[in-house]
Amino acid sequence: MSEVSVVSYAAAPDVRETAGTTNGVEMLVPIIGEALRAANLTKHDIGFWCSGSSDYLAGRAFSFIAAVDAIGAYPPINESHVEADAAWALYEAWIKIRTGEVDTALVYGFGKSSAGELRRVLSLQLDPYTVAPLWPDPVSLAGLQARLGLDRGLWSERDLAEVAARSRGANPAAPVHERVTAEELLRRPYLADPLRRHDCPPVTDGAAVVVLAQAGRARDLTDHPARITGLAHRVETAHLGARDLTASPSTVDAARAAGVDGVALAELHAPFTHQEIILRRALGIAGDVDVNPSGGALVANPMFAAGLARIGEAARRVAPGQRALAHATSGPLLQQNLVCVLEGE
């Protein structure tokens, strides 16, 4: 199996609302340049481009097409796009390099979540016949999932607050940042019982770029590549009633396929506090693992870029010889999960 490494990563500032367009150009132009420069590459050196974004986030058909302007895609480029978080675009690019057809790839994801009514937009991911016509929103669905675990004693409201307190204190650059204790958080009111504001992700506009290279080339491009030693993803049924919502079997399977033993840090794409607990258990993450040093999706959740950002953040932090895990999720209530294992070089 030919190996692939992350050679650079750049992310736009995560903000509550950007004045920019829904095609992401204003966010992408600087960070595509930054990611290329960091790897001493130009756009002409990139063998394959792949992006992740959503028409429904933008409210327009083919909204991703204008984003290629940010590349300056001429002469024409070898390119593809996934209608999913860009972590899945990275998966497609990783596959492309492993076919031997190309030895570099640039992956980007972007989303202007603030352009629409995000909670209503995301309802359209549900079964269009029997669930979506009721417009259940992601916060309400997450509340159903959280209470299942609370009622079964799988986690407590205090456990959730501790996840939130740690996340909110992690990253001064994130749109949500405060030094706060779990006790203080528990005194705050419910947003929608059983969830408090801090249990939920902030609406965030953002974008992220990751450059991949065939491992043999990676050393030429950066002093600190992060080798991808495992990358796998799985999906679960959309039928909510048939799932055990307190566990994440798709994460368990993806982790088994990717091989997650011995990781020192983990970047988990857990938009809700209880989902971090579900994911930790599914991934078998021990207490000494540094979880979400970036603060994770609870402090900045740029839709369609947040999963890719987890991979970039893990790659940025993993020390030589160390192993790190990055996770991305897609769909309602952790329906689809991706696990990426990186090794610092």
């Binding site: 909670r119 009721l134 509340g143 959280a146 299942l148 419910y190 929608a192 909510l240």
Partner: peptide, 24 residues
């Protein structure tokens, strides 16, 4: 009711216009 979540501020299109609860 297997699980439930409060909806204190219903969104457009949801089954009720006043505060209600989602449930499985």
């Amino acid at each position: 009711v297997v699980t439930w979540a409060a909806q204190p501020q219903p969104l457009e299109g949801q089954p009720l216009r006043h505060p209600f609860c989602w449930a499985m």
